[in-house]
Design a protein around this nucleic acid. Structure first.
Length: 591
RNA sequence: GGGAUCGUAGUUCAGUUUGGUUAGAACGCCGGCCUGUCACGCCGGAGGUCGCGAGUUCGAGUCUCGUCGGUCCCGCCA
């Protein structure tokens, strides 16, 4: 008798297979030992099938089955039987049948698992990540990796159909200024020199366009050595793309097709095209953020003009210093208690608010510690601007614009969460366009690129490069879904002269530009086609598609918030000899 | 770099407010019984560095300080 060969998986047998001899392989999910008959739920990647050991059929095998325990690995051969009488289990796809076992091979035993795999019980991240291989056996966890696979396959098929080429770019590349902190790899061959892991394949994909590849994509790991969040890991995956001879409209329309295909294939949602678009300026003005969640209201209203010269000193002095006063009308929140308001104020303070004025709109009066400072005209103006009705609550932000915007943007999200007024079935896609080219960095006393230094400005604004860079807008675009940035890109500069001017505006001198980006400038001079691209965050996208609360859930082997891997215990010390080879001398205390 | 929160049996958690006898429950695990269960049932049993270290106290799971780890957030990062 040879070794058993698997004939089916644990999710495919039903009445159509009655009477067939089959062989299944999998893990013991649960055993129900009645002394006589023994039931085992056998689990594999696909599902669960009940296998039965009956002492009357085969006493020897039955005795052997008695010792089976959780997560032992089995091969069973037997006949597919209809379950007797009322014994069907509607919860299982295979619930109408069972396997009457006449041959059992124990392929492996297992220690008792450190946490239960058979239910969706809460297990600490600590344990889950330490025993990630067990965690991944849980169907609901495995399902997320399955969906990730399906999503990537769908995207690849779509892009292949659109004549994109999948091309790999180096993981060992050079560190470039701007952007996030690099992960560095010391060179053994060149003492004192370092590779950097890519933050994105930005320059390579542009060079591929210059190479005439025309359309490139890659499912690619990117690395940023910054602190982690629920939606940020130090290594993450992008669907990265670049196209030649296109403008932003063409790119946006191709991407909309891709996203529509993706949503249909993964979660069966039919999106209607095209997606909404909004200029950056409008997003900030109405929502305080460049990634607004448009599933609910509470929009920002600018009261600066209406309240200039008002009797409230706090507002006045802020306006005098160039600040703004904006407010949101929390419709129907007039009943909020003092504690509710204190909580919101405390919440606002996390984002830089130094206080939060509020007004409760009552039938007979405006109830607030600050109403007395305003005259009738000001109150009327506010009431009209905010559409204030009895029962409403007005929340104010008064500070420099960036602080006000951040605070009110976070407050409106917090309000929506508290009131539970977000329609979870909605998929609000929104393109944000016309970002500023530059923003002024107070610390470094220079302009930095909002997107990156290769983003093209609008051509009719080129003369502003010298006179007023801050007023320039770029040909960049982000795709936002329900308040989450899931992708972003731009049309690039393909003219080396403009590229040099942009570097100059960023305070990067010609010499430095040559040293750091000389290879790109040189390439641009050899007939670079107009081109542009975009990249999607695969992990965030999958987090949204699976309804997960962290991207760790959709990454097979994620890192903890302190950027360690609990499974492998990386990072770890290395032998002194390895350091010497790399020309590194440790200045840390050795164990 | 900073703030918040959690850490008690293999797991999930109660006990910490107000320090005081032998630290409990459920699930899991082990043993026994059980021929139709599917979260099987019944009976019995084992299982604890209360994260770690100092301190206060006659006495610390409980109070104080430090430290380690998980998570969330600010800064940082597109």
């Amino acid at each position: 008798m040879g070794a058993l060969q698997r004939t089916h998986n644990c999710n495919e047998l039903d009445q159509n297979f009655l009477g067939q001899e089959v062989t299944l392989m999998g893990w013991v999910l649960r055993r129900r030992d009645h002394g006589g008959v023994i039931f085992i739920d056998l689990r594999d990647r696909w599902g669960i099938t009940q296998v039965v050991f009956n002492p009357e059929i085969n006493p020897e095998i039955h005795a052997k089955a008695h010792q089976l325990r959780s997560e032992w690995v089995l091969a069973v051969r037997g006949r597919v039987e209809r379950r007797p009488g009322e014994m069907e289990n509607p919860k299982l796809k295979t619930g109408a049948i069972e396997i009457l076992v006449d041959q059992l091979t124990i392929l492996n035993t297992s220690q008792t698992p450190p946490f239960p795999l058979d239910e969706d019980s809460e297990v600490s991240d600590n344990l889950r990540l330490q025993y990630r291989y067990l965690d991944l056996r849980r169907p609901e966890v495995a399902a997320k990796l399955v969906m990730r696979h399906k999503a990537l396959q769908t995207v690849r098929n779509y892009l292949n159909d659109q004549e994109f080429l999948e091309i790999e770019t180096p993981m060992l590349t050079r560190s470039t200024p701007e952007g996030a902190r690099d992960y560095l790899v010391p060179s053994r061959v060149h003492a004192g020199k370092f590779f950097a892991l890519p933050q994105s394949p930005q320059l390579f994909k542009q060079i591929l366009m210059i190479s005439g590849m025309d359309r490139y994509y890659q499912v690619v790991k990117c690395f940023r050595d910054e602190d982690l969040r629920a939606d940020r890991q130090p290594e993450f995956t992008q669907i990265d793309m670049e196209l030649s001879f296109v403008d932003e409209h063409r790119i946006i329309s191709i991407m909309e097709g891709m996203v529509k295909t993706l949503f249909a294939a993964t979660i069966g949602v039919e999106l209607s095209l095209p997606f909404a678009q909004m200029r950056y300026e409008e997003a900030i003005r109405r929502f305080g953020t460049d990634r607004p969640d448009t599933r609910f209201g509470f929009e920002l209203v600018d009261l600066t003009q209406a309240l200039t010269g008002c009797g409230f000193k706090v507002f006045n002095s802020i306006i005098d210093k160039g600040g703004v006063v904006k407010a949101i009308n929390a419709k129907g929140c007039g009943h909020f208690s003092r504690k509710d308001l204190d909580d919101l104020t405390e919440y606002a303070s996390r984002f830089g608010a130094r206080g939060m004025a509020w007004i409760k709109i009552k039938e007979e009066e405006w109830q607030s510690p600050i109403t007395k400072f305003f005259n009738d005209e000001e109150i009327a103006a506010m009431g009209q601007a905010l559409d204030a009705q009895p029962g409403d609550l007005i929340l104010f932000g008064a500070d420099m614009p960036s602080t006000v915007h951040q605070v009110l943007a976070e407050l409106r999200l917090e309000l929506a969460r508290r009131l539970d007024c977000i329609d979870q079935d909605r998929h609000d896609f929104l393109w944000i366009t016309d970002f500023p080219m530059f923003e002024y960095d107070e610390e470094e006393k220079r302009y930095t690129a909002i997107h990156h230094p290769f983003t093209a400005p609008h051509e009719d604004q080129l003369e502003l490069l010298d006179s007023d860079p801050a007023a320039m807008t770029s040909r960049a675009y982000d795709l936002v879904l329900n308040g989450n940035e899931i992708g972003g890109g731009s049309i690039r500069i393909h003219d080396p002269e403009i590229q040099e001017k942009v570097f100059k505006a960023l305070g990067i001198e010609a010499e430095e530009a040559q040293e750091k980006f000389g290879f790109l400038l040189k390439a641009l001079a050899f007939g670079a086609p107009p081109h542009g691209g975009i990249a999607f965050g695969v992990d965030r996208l999958l987090m949204l598609l699976t309804g997960s609360s962290s991207i760790r859930e959709v990454i097979a082997f994620p890192k903890t918030q302190k950027a360690t891997c609990l499974l492998t215990e990386a990072p770890a010390p290395v032998a002194r000899k390895q350091l010497t080879e790399l020309h590194l001398r440790p200045d840390w205390k050795e164990e």
